[in-house]
Write a protein that binds this DNA or RNA. Structure first.
Lengths: 243, 243
DNA sequence: ACAAAAGTGTTATCAGTACACCCATGC
DNA sequence: GCATGGGTGTACTGATAACACTTTTGT
């Protein structure tokens, strides 16, 4: 099939990766660097993204972009907003960059976010200057990507309260404290360990395994898994109005 | 300013209107009709929408589209999803229609929904064949607009549980039972009147007015208003994890 | 006086919150 | 044996859910 780009429509991907070792919620960003006559014209970071091809769905574009950068497929993906302000690519650095890259100044982007584990991504051979940054300590960002990230993060914060997407950021086998640490990272709050533990263990879709942590230098913790099957079976909308 | 359309990007508007008299949640749709040699080629309904102009934001496009159809501005508006499947305008009727209208077969649309009161809209002079339809009894729809409506409605159902957007569908002065009726319409559930009443009246931003209904043929009910000011002041995120 | 919708109270249950110490393990 | 993080129990409070009858008004 011929790959014909739609020149004014792109998909940008906010890739959230949780590093369970350092307990850090990170974003995967791409280096944007341009110099001319020893003068640095552009030196910052952007989200990974690409034009939509004429034959593909927006979801397909997002999947493709993630795969090209990380090799990963089947990660949690959500389209959360379209950004199409006429001036969104119009800052001086962006204009220089776009001249160099030959794409359309009036591009609307459909933004997605992905949830995955940093450990699943191998960046050693990547040629994009891709790197992880803690979500609360980001470098200078090009285009309107700071805003896009901001809105993705807000959506993630909200969604993780009502849907079990948190487990997409964790390994298949995790401890209760892993989950608590991650909630605390995402939401920037402190949670009472006893209450949290009770709450989670009481869920039927949080299943205690016959396994404990290995290779830790302290008391090894009980491992659990999340059962999507049980969750889906149990799930029923509750119409609790809380305004 | 010159009005130059972006030919492959549009905004479609799902206009929810609540008719408090008939207690009906309605959608505002546009007639699509085309015949040739006495043969009816296209006869169905679509959402109101239009291309994005090069100089305007997506939000501006949505606002403009609503204004052109209804004359209304400053209504609650939410961008909820972009639809860009390559085949979304490719059903036979859609292709006939698009030939006739001369727009792009590979158009991505940014979908918004609006919340307003049917009584605020005057359709008597409208030339689009616009009409209200109960959200659960829609006519045949063109393009992928059935799906767009479906997703808008799902989003509305979810949002009305956690944000006070329900009041955008009601007049400034309403009774407790009005609110209950509307929740029941939107969610398709039954709510216990005593519990609901207590819950709502206890909110500090639901303010009892010194007024009762007039012109009703039964016992007139107490009127209330919603104070956005008080709501905003009181509001603080609660990080209740309910997965 | 009657029809229709408005309005009212109590109890039981469940979930959330606050709070401090002992335990098991690897080193 | 000790440092580290894992793991545990109770009491209070507030919200939800279930449930049926009386009151007010217009006609």
């Amino acid at each position: 099939m011929m790959l014909e780009k739609i020149l004014n429509i792109s998909v940008d991907c906010v890739v959230f990766g949780y590093d369970i070792t350092s307990k850090s919620l990170n974003l995967l960003l791409i280096k944007r660097y341009l110099e001319s006559n020893n003068e640095v014209l552009v030196d910052d970071y952007v989200l990974t993204g690409y034009h939509v091809y004429t034959h593909e769905t927006l979801d397909d574009t997002a999947t493709r972009v993630l795969k090209e950068l990380t090799g990963l497929t089947n990660q949690y993906k959500k389209q959360f907003k379209a950004f199409g302000n006429p001036d969104r690519l119009m800052r001086p650095k962006d204009i220089i960059w776009i001249e160099n890259e030959a794409f359309h100044l009036r591009t609307t982007t459909i933004a997605y976010y992905f949830l995955l584990k940093t450990e699943d991504v191998d960046l050693t051979n990547n040629t994009n200057g891709a790197a992880w940054f803690p979500v609360n300590d980001l470098p200078e960002l090009g285009f309107d990507h700071k805003q896009i990230i901001q809105e993705a993060y807000e959506d993630l914060k909200e969604k993780c309260l009502s849907e079990p997407i948190i487990f997409k950021l964790l390994p298949d086998k995790f401890t209760i404290n892993d989950v608590q640490d991650l909630y605390e990272s995402i939401l920037g709050i402190e949670i009472d360990n006893r209450n949290f533990r009770r709450k989670l263990i009481n869920k039927k879709y949080i299943i205690a395994l016959d396994e404990k942590q290995v290779g830790v230098s302290k008391k090894p913790a009980q491992l659990y898994m999340f059962s999507k099957d049980i969750y889906d079976k149990m799930f029923q909308k509750n119409y609790l109005i809380s305004i």
